[in-house]
Design a protein around this nucleic acid. Structure first.
Lengths: 235, 235
DNA sequence: CAGTGGTCTAGACCACCTC
DNA sequence: AGGTGGTCTAGACCACTGG
C-alpha cells in the first residue's frame, strides 16, 4: 500500500467514523504532515485522491472541507462503473446461459479480436435486495478470461478475474441509452413491454489496454437510481 | 495557465492534430521533460490529468498510450456534468418561465437557504441540433446569482455565471432516475405520455462549497445517448 | 498581510514490464 | 538487466482567501 493511499484511507475512515458533517474543515496541511510524518506533496496527493472520490473539496487559501450528500438508496457511480460500487446492497445473480462461442462481427470489433477466436458468453439476471436489477449479456475474450463456470458467474465475475486470474482491470468505456423494453426483456425483469430501461454497453479494458469484456446491460428502471459526483469544472 | 495544464493541452492537441490511433505510444518521460523543459513530476502531473480526462492510459514499466473511442453522436460526460461537454453540438434554449420566487421547503433544503430568501426560477426547453433535448427547471440562489433575464437564460446560464458574474463553479451532486413522462412533459418534449425519460436532479456548488443551483431535468430519451469513461479501478 | 493551499524542481529510490 | 513509469522528499516560491 502506497503512503498517499494509506493516508487517504485513514482520513476517509476518520471522516466516516466521526460522521463529520458537510463543510467540516480538516486540519491544515502542516498538521497533517506532522501527524502522518510525511512531506507536503504526499499529503496533497492523498487529499487530491479524496477530492476525486468526492469526499472532500479543497479551497485555495482557505482550507479543505468534508463533502457529503444526504440521499439514501442510490447506487453510487464513482468513476468505476456501476457494478462495483454496490457495497451496502445485497447483490445476487442467476445465470441463464453460459457457453463458448465464436463472436459476432460487432463483438469481435469491440473486443479487438478475430471472428475465429473464442469468447465466453454469459447471460444473467442480477438482483438487488431481492428485486431484479438488470439483464446482462457479456462476452469475455477467452484468451484472457481462460475459464468460467456457472458457480463463478453466479457471484462477481470481476472479483474472480482480479483475484482468481490475477488480471488487473484498468478502465472502461460506457455507452448509455434510454430505451423501451421489448417483450422478452420485460418478462425477464418482471416488467411490462414498453416500460423504460437504461441500456448500457460497456467495454472493459485491462490496465495494459487490452479489452477483455464487452457487455450489454438493461437496467430495471424501478431500481435505477444512481448517484454521481462531478469534481473539478476546471480540469 | 499553469505549466502542467499547458503541457497537457499541448499533448492533447498533438494527439488530436495528428489523429493518433488508440494504443499509440507517447514519447518516454525523459523526452517529454526535455521537450517541455520541465521536471519529471510536472510531466507526470500533466499526464495524470490527461488520464483522468480519458485521453491516455499509463502502464507502469511500459509506456503511456493514446486512448480513443469510436462512436459518434454521443454526449460525453467527463466528470463535468452533461451540460458543458456539448462541444460539437448545436445547443439552443427556449425560456418558458423566469421569475423570482420564495423557495419550497425542498428547494430551500437543497440550496441550504432560508424559505424567506429569494430564488430565481427558470423553466426552459433545450434543443440539440434542432431536436428537443430536455425540459429543465432550475432554482438559483439569488444571493449568489444576483441577476438573470430572458436573454441570458436563452443562452448558457453557466457561461454567464462564470464570466459575467465572476463566480467559480466547483462541483456537483447528481441524482439520476429512469422514469415515465407525464402528459405535460411529453407535450413539451414532443413525445408520448408514458415514454421513457432520464430524470436528473442536480445540485451545483461554487468552488467554496456553497450551493447556488438546484435543477430538475427531464431528458428526451431519443436524444439521450451518453458516453462515459471510467478510469482507475484502483483508486 | 497572515494563513493556507498548490506548483515546481532535482534527485534518490522503488515497482513493474519486456526481453 | 535495462527501460520506463511512479513515489517520496525538502524546500523555494506562487496564488488565493479572509479578516
Amino acid at each position: 500500500m502506497l503512503k498517499y493511499q494509506q493516508i487517504a484511507n485513514e482520513i476517509q475512515q476518520d471522516i466516516e467514523k466521526n460522521d463529520l458533517p458537510q463543510g467540516t474543515k480538516l486540519p491544515v496541511l502542516e498538521t497533517l504532515m506532522s501527524q502522518y510524518k510525511t512531506s507536503k506533496s504526499t499529503v496533497i496527493k492523498a487529499l487530491s485522491l479524496l477530492e476525486r472520490k468526492g469526499l472532500v473539496y479543497q479551497v485555495r487559501g482557505s482550507g479543505i472541507f468534508v463533502r457529503r450528500h444526504n440521499r439514501k438508496g442510490y447506487i453510487s457511480f464513482s468513476n468505476q462503473g456501476f457494478s462495483d460500487e454496490l457495497s451496502g446492497f445485497d447483490i445476487t445473480a442467476k445465470v441463464l446461459e453460459l457457453d463458448i462461442q465464436k463472436p459476432s462481427a460487432e463483438v469481435a470489433f469491440n473486443l479487438k479480436i478475430d471472428p475465429e477466436d473464442d469468447v465466453y458468453y454469459v447471460k444473467r439476471i442480477r438482483y438487488i435486495n431481492g428485486q431484479t436489477l438488470c439483464l446482462e449479456e457479456s462476452y469475455y475474450n477467452k484468451a484472457i478470461v481462460t475459464y468460467l463456470n456457472n458457480e463463478i458467474a453466479t457471484g462477481s465475475i470481476f472479483d474472480y478475474i482480479s483475484n482468481g486470474l490475477g488480471a488487473k482491470i484498468g478502465f472502461s468505456d460506457m455507452y448509455v441509452h434510454i430505451q423501451k423494453l421489448d417483450e422478452n426483456e420485460a418478462q425477464h425483469l418482471g416488467l411490462q413491454t414498453g416500460d423504460p430501461k437504461l441500456f448500457v454497453e460497456t467495454i472493459f479494458y485491462l490496465n495494459n489496454g487490452l479489452p477483455f469484456d464487452f457487455s450489454r446491460i438493461s437496467y430495471n428502471y424501478e431500481q435505477s437510481q444512481f448517484f454521481f459526483q462531478s469534481t473539478g469544472y476546471s480540469l
